[in-house]
């Protein structure tokens, strides 16, 4: 497993550390292991990404680290404090923002709700109001400051929740899918603000879970790829991309027809294959051992009666590294 630390981060002081962290969910019928022996070290000042498909264990990991959930076994420390035994002291040092939810007292105005939370965190009232106005301005929400939360769009509400997470200046901020369901512009604003917030104080740490590979590539100093509750790779986005440097990455566009993904995966020399439907066509991403595999791919496609409408060879991305490690794309359901 690749493990490289970002040179700018102070890895001598760990912001997050887990040791054989395991979480099992019990229902009446079955046991589900959401996290299995996760060992993780995130240095102070890092922006660390946790990537994985749905159900991989990302949100479970975050919930344990923010003291909402107890681990079944193992240990976790945030800012040097045990999340199980020292959770009361820890809570003033952390913050969390979850995306894709409608959190907020709809009857309150934006500024009221944010101020209220600042008081729950013990901030000086005047300083809090100043900080809230500053962050609202930076995120383009000044005009909405006196609006009731029910009147906000989901993008505005998400930005408001980001302000809630940032305003208390936590030592470690956990962002769980912060840009999910946001439009391009709002997502860009969120990413930009997160970067800016970290620049303000290099000792601040962010743990980010995301579905968006480009977001992780753009933002994160390092990422961990989680699959079925285990960390399958860890390193800088660059290092992970280098792990597929020797492969030939091909994007293949096929008109609709007989499913061929399994047949493509069965070809010798095809390291990984994923597909997504877009604009009525199937877009395959194939990782080939070398150029010599391509003719076999084309033969298989034609044999299935599919028509190739596009073929491009391109540079590897973090998504390719993810597919190689996990065996499927982020959005693809597990077989």
């Amino acid at each position: 497993m690749a493990r490289t630390h970002h040179p700018s981060s102070d890895t001598s002081r760990l912001a997050v550390e887990t040791r054989r962290l395991t979480r099992v969910y019990k229902t009446r019928r079955e046991l589900t292991t959401a996290l299995q022996d996760v060992d993780l070290e995130v240095g102070e000042g890092e922006l660390f990404g946790v990537l994985g498909p749905n159900g991989a264990g990302k949100t479970t990991l975050i919930k344990i680290l923010v003291t909402l959930l107890l681990p079944t076994s193992g240990q976790a420390f945030v800012d040097g404090l045990d999340v199980v035994t020292d959770y009361k002291r820890l809570r003033s040092r952390i913050g969390m923002v979850s995306g894709g939810e409608q959190a907020g007292y709809g009857i309150l105005k934006v500024r009221e709700q944010l101020w209220m939370f600042s008081q729950f965190y013990g901030m000086d009232s005047t300083a809090a109001r100043k900080r809230i106005d500053e962050l609202l301005e930076r995120l383009g929400l000044s005009d909405a400051a006196n609006k009731q939360i029910t009147g906000l769009s989901s993008g505005m509400r998400q930005k408001m929740n980001l302000v809630r997470g940032l305003m208390t200046d936590p030592r470690v901020l956990f962002l769980d899918e912060p840009t999910v369901a946001l439009d391009v512009s709002a997502a860009r604003d969120v990413r930009s603000e997160v970067r800016r917030w970290m620049r303000e104080d290099p000792t601040r740490t962010v743990i980010l879970t995301t579905h968006y590979m480009q977001e992780a590539d753009e933002l994160c100093d390092r990422v961990a790829i989680v699959n079925r509750g285990r960390i399958v790779a860890e390193g800088t986005p660059r290092a992970l991309k280098q792990s597929v440097d020797d492969d030939v990455i091909v994007d293949l566009q096929l008109d609709p027809g007989t499913p061929v993904l399994d047949r493509l995966r069965a070809i010798e020399g095809v390291g990984a294959a994923s597909v997504r439907e877009e604009d009525g066509v199937d877009r395959f991403s194939l990782m080939l051992a070398d150029d010599g595999v391509l003719p076999r791919v084309m033969t298989t496609v034609e044999g299935a009666g599919r028509h190739v409408s596009g073929l491009v060879r391109r540079q590897p991305t973090l998504e390719d590294a993810f597919v190689k490690l996990v065996g499927r794309s982020m959005t693809e359901e597990e077989a």
Partner: peptide, 10 residues
């Protein structure tokens, strides 16, 4: 949907 944030507050 905000209980977790109040619960986590110091």
């Amino acid at each position: 949907h905000i209980l977790k944030y109040s619960y986590m507050a110091p």
